[in-house]
């Protein structure tokens, strides 16, 4: 609704203010050009999607492995977290060209950059999630005779799920931005390099078309994580409906 109003205002402004379409194209023109160039857009979106998903998968795997390590060996946390915090302060503008310089125009630097921007949020989410385990549940499991590994699997891991999904929703949006940024710094194909070329050819309409594609991509991934959460945490949904029948009190 609000997006619709914005688009209408933009359309009116672009058409009636006398601004040149090479500066600010109307949404209708962007859409028209997007349709005309859809093959090129799809062709360039595929490597971006690939970089996003592979990079994010690597980041998830690493974050999961390290979060477990940190959970089992608390001193590691103090040793490692400063490094990761610094990794988050690195400006992508500076890092992206360097990574491309070192690792070439292929898939590797994109995967690395996506992993770099998404790794820390996922790690923090997981570690915080483990910590959120109810103290009583841990005590009870140990009294039942469960060792650390059983406590982790039975209590800490499931307790971290809401945090994991919160982190996932944030990270997946970073992931797309990270991939586009990496391509912007140098790539054979991808939405990032497509935007750069379109800009250099004075085609803001095509830049915006690519932006639209990346936005749609982000929304789809975001929706997928929400769907995944619903499937993985049925108690969140069902738990809100109180039981209606049977012996109460």
């Amino acid at each position: 609704m609000s997006v619709g109003l914005l688009l209408v205002a933009w359309e009116l402004y672009a058409n009636y203010s006398g601004i040149k379409p090479t500066i600010l194209p109307a949404p209708s023109r962007v859409f028209e050009q997007a349709t005309l160039n859809r093959e090129a857009l799809i062709d360039n979106a595929v490597p971006t999607i690939r970089a996003t998903l592979i990079g994010f998968a690597c980041s998830l795997g690493a974050a999961f492995a390290l979060s477990m390590l940190v959970d089992f060996f608390q001193p590691l946390r103090r040793a490692l977290f400063p490094v990761f915090i610094v990794s988050q302060t690195l400006p992508l503008v500076a890092i992206a060209p360097l990574v491309v310089l070192w690792f070439g125009f292929g898939l590797t630097p994109k995967i690395m950059l996506v992993a770099l921007v998404t790794f820390f949020p996922m790690l923090v989410a997981l570690v915080q999630g483990y910590e959120a385990t109810e103290v009583e549940i841990g005590q009870m499991l140990r009294a039942m005779g469960a060792g650390r590994w059983r406590v982790f699997v039975l209590a800490r891991l499931p307790s971290a799920l809401p945090y994991f999904f919160a982190g996932l929703r944030i990270s997946i949006t970073y992931a797309v931005v990270g991939a586009i940024f990496a391509e912007y710094a140098g790539a054979a194909k991808g939405l990032g390099i497509y935007m750069l070329n379109a800009k250099n050819n004075f085609r803001p309409d095509l830049v915006l078309a690519a932006v639209g594609v990346s936005a749609a991509l982000t929304l789809i991934l975001f929706g997928l994580t929400a769907l995944l959460q619903r499937l993985a945490m049925p108690w969140e949904r069902i738990g809100r409906q109180p039981a209606g029948k049977g012996p109460g009190r």
Binding site: E136, I137, Q139, M140, L141, A146, R150, L154, W235, G239
Partner: peptide, 24 residues
């Protein structure tokens, strides 16, 4: 041991919560 509060696991159904000790 039965702790303060119920310490039921929100992600387990009642049946699976009650069998937890045996599972361990």
């Amino acid at each position: 041991f039965m702790p303060q509060r119920d310490a039921l696991m929100p992600w387990r159904r009642i049946l699976d919560n009650t069998t937890l000790g045996l599972e361990v």
